[in-house]
C-alpha cells in the first residue's frame, strides 16, 4: 500500500527539484499574479505527492482525498484572494 522504493525515490527527487524552483523564483525577486499562480501550482503538486503517496491517501476512501486536497486548494484560493485584494488597493 506504500508503493515501491523506486517510486518513492523518484517522487522525492521531484519534490527536491520543485523546491529548488521555488527558491530560484524567490532569489530572482519576480512577483505578480503569474508568479503567485506558479508558486501555488508548485505547492499544490508537492502537497499532492505528500498527501496521495507519502500519506498513502491514494488508497484511502475518497472522502479523505477530497478533504486534504480540498484543504490545500482552498488555502491557496484564499491566499490568491488576499493577493488580489492587495493589488487593487
Amino acid at each position: 500500500m506504500h508503493g515501491t522504493a523506486r517510486r518513492a525515490t523518484l517522487l522525492w527527487a521531484a519534490l527536491i527539484a520543485a523546491t529548488a524552483l521555488t527558491w530560484w523564483v524567490g532569489e530572482g525577486g519576480a512577483s505578480g499574479p503569474a508568479i503567485l499562480a506558479l508558486l501555488a501550482a508548485i505547492s499544490i503538486v508537492k502537497g499532492g505527492i505528500v498527501i496521495l503517496d507519502f500519506m498513502a491517501l491514494r488508497h484511502a476512501p475518497l472522502m479523505w482525498r477530497l478533504i486534504t486536497l480540498g484543504w490545500i486548494s482552498l488555502v491557496w484560493v484564499l491566499i490568491g484572494l488576499a493577493y488580489w485584494k492587495g493589488l487593487s488597493q
Partner: peptide
C-alpha cells in the same frame, strides 16, 4: 534568509521520504 527556508524544506521532505522508506521496510 530564503536559502535557509529552502534548505529546511529539503530537510523536511527528505525526512518524510526516509519515513516512507521505513514503512516500506517494515512492510
Amino acid at each position: 534568509h530564503r536559502g535557509a527556508g529552502a534548505l529546511n524544506t529539503v530537510l523536511l521532505l527528505t525526512a518524510s521520504y526516509f519515513v516512507v522508506r521505513a514503512v516500506q521496510a517494515a512492510e
